[in-house]
């Protein structure tokens, strides 16, 4: 049996409440201090650190607000890849596999899991320890690969998904763009004021646990 891998995340970097100054500058307030040990479903701990570092360069934590780290984007991606999507259960995978014209899109057999493993090999295990400048340089070099395109897409998904999927921790992504969650009223968004209305997740609204597709066999 595969040894269980964990990712350790300092809890104070996750989620929290986003406050806006009158000048519109965001700042993050967090109550939690301890460390979280999150069991990984697909990545090894080392892989998870590499992906975390890469996501952080795609959607960085900076003076414009929190980024992929605070939203726990890595947890979102790990769960997606562990689930049926990662195994290509919802893609037509019968052969013959043939390259075709560009209008036919991706005709390559690699599943999302395989695409990540190929991309991680390109980045190397030391990626997480490099400087931001070096990381950017290396990501730019692979910008056109299927892996990078997928990583960028899933970083955005993990930033702004419903928290039931593991990303958007503390609904930090929704706070960042003023999205109220799946609510049944007209979305009258206001960019002014020091604090936007707190968003609500699907579980908070329905009052029951909602299972994502990645949790089904």
């Amino acid at each position: 049996m595969k040894r269980r891998e964990f990712l350790t995340i300092p809890a104070h970097t996750l989620g929290g409440s986003l406050w806006y100054s009158l000048a519109g500058r965001p700042s993050l307030v967090s109550a939690q201090q301890k460390e979280l040990r999150v069991p990984l479903r697909f990545f090894t701990a080392v892989e998870a650190q590499v992906v975390t570092a890469a996501c952080d360069r795609i959607f960085p934590s900076d003076e414009n607000g929190p980024g992929a780290k605070e939203a726990a984007v890595i947890i979102y991606i790990d769960r997606q890849l562990a689930g049926p999507y990662g195994r290509d259960k919802y893609r037509y995978t019968k052969g013959p596999w043939r390259e075709s014209v560009p209008e036919h899109g991706n005709q390559r057999p690699a599943s999302p899991r395989e695409t990540y493993r190929q991309g991680l090999a390109l980045l190397g295990a030391s990626f997480a320890d490099q400087t931001a400048e070096e990381q950017d340089r290396r990501l730019q070099a692979i910008e056109r690969t299927d892996f990078f395109q997928l990583l960028r897409t899933q970083t955005i998904e993990g930033m702004f998904c419903d928290p039931l999927h593991g990303g958007n921790a503390g609904m930090i992504g929704w706070q960042l763009i003023g999205f109220p969650g799946p609510v049944m009223t007209h979305h009258g968004q206001s960019a002014n004021g020091s604090k936007r209305p707190a968003p609500r997740s699907l579980e908070q609204i329905t009052g029951r646990r909602v299972k994502g597709w990645e949790d089904e066999a």
């Binding site: 998904e157 702004f160 999927h165 699907l202 329905t206 994502g212 597709w213």
Partner: peptide, 24 residues
Amino acid sequence: YSANMDEVDYSIRMRMLQNIAEET
């Protein structure tokens, strides 16, 4: 449908559609 207001599963994974792995 009240538990389905989830962008990842429905807009991105397109859970309401025919499973394209089975027929396309």
